[in-house]
Design a protein around this nucleic acid. Sequence first.
DNA 1: CGTCTTTGACCCGCGC
DNA 2: GCGCGGGTCAAAGACG
Length: 312
Amino acid sequence: MSNETKDLYSYQYLTSLSLYELMNLPTSTPSSYGNNGFVPSSYPLADCFQSSPGAAYDSLLHTTLGVSPSSSEVFNSLVDQESKHDVTNDVIGETPTRVSASSSSSEADLPGEDSGKSQRKRELVGDGREENQSSKKVGKTKKKEEKKQREPRVSFMTKSEVDHLEDGYRWRKYGQKAVKNSIYPRSYYRCTTQRCNVKKRVERSFQDPTVVITTYEGQHNHPLPTNLRGSSAAAAMYSADFMTPGSFTHEMFRSSAYTSGGSAAAALDYGYEQSSYGSVNANPNAHQEYRQGGEYELLKEIFPSIFFKQEP
DNA sequence: CGTCTTTGACCCGCGC
DNA sequence: GCGCGGGTCAAAGACG
């Protein structure tokens, strides 16, 4: 299983998915991620939460990632990793729980522990690289401890022509790497708000180039920037191909995000304001723009902790 | 001039 | 121990 696949199916992603994310997640996945296509129908959110936690998890899994019940291999691997974790608490409840590091090496490699790593690195740079050796040893012990405190991560796939899907926050790109076995690079972004170390990775699926895989890590400790620049509210868009009429997204919030026959549907709408950066507006016809201001406010009221983490 | 992207170098963990 | 791959840094450049 590739790292990418591991990421996508990481139980942690599911456990930390925000409600709104869940509601807007596409119901299909690229072939490499499970069932090679579409889930017959979307799962009404209510169904997910009316069921037992286990069933909710099951439903969510299917809903968000398009894992068919027959994809037992993937599903089981998820359960094995963090079987003690209560999914519904994280989805519906307060601040998503930080889960301990799994035994998966690739999981541990993900940048959850980066804060320590980066900090140490900066110190090294500042002090001069000669001290690299001595600092290394000290850092290792420290790092192991930090490993356990990973930020919650959310990963989802979006059918979009643009790579960087706007979510209302301002991001600064700090890196780009070629992805193994993929012609598409992976971009690394960091929230530009001070003291907010939320990161996200954006990459395009090699199997289905129309699908953008976005992974958020950490929680914003601040509300959405109010003085956002730019004009487009396009933000993260899901193709209508992914959406099923009658899905919870459509039903529960009467969102016009879903446009039957249209090319796009708004998703992950944290209260979109388009940052003017990036290539989002490169193809203005690629997506239909939305600004469902009320939705965000409503959701924020209902699930405040999902949208941003208050400073202690 | 401030903000953001680009990009090569670097660090680190892991598997062999 | 070595090489690989993922993730990050930071200087330089682009842009409004």
